[in-house]
């Protein structure tokens, strides 16, 4: 199974957040790595987008889009930082 890079998140997250969220820095709850979301690994051939830490592989975030809504879960991000 191959994955895309975190830039694949730009469209989905633009529906939820102002600005380009792929430039936001996430701190991985698993290994503590701090990296821009654009550097994460995104598994898109799945029922939703699965975003994994590029260092330890833990799940940082999922994005599930139904016809009615978009649901973002961030089980593996302790701090999400986006510069103003």
């Amino acid at each position: 199974m191959t994955h895309l890079d975190g830039n694949a998140l730009a469209g989905a997250l633009a529906e939820l957040f102002l600005g380009d969220m792929t430039l936001a820095t996430g701190t991985c709850a698993g290994c503590g790595d701090e990296a821009e979301l654009a550097r994460a690994m995104v598994y898109a051939d799945a029922p939703g987008l699965v975003v994994r830490c590029s260092r330890c592989g833990d799940v940082l975030m999922t994005v599930v889009r139904s016809p009615a809504d978009t649901r973002v879960s961030m089980p593996g991000i302790t701090i999400l930082t986006l510069l103003r």
Partner: peptide
């Protein structure tokens, strides 16, 4: 037979 996965194989 599409392949779907939430992570690496």
């Amino acid at each position: 037979f599409p392949v779907l996965s939430a992570g690496p194989t």
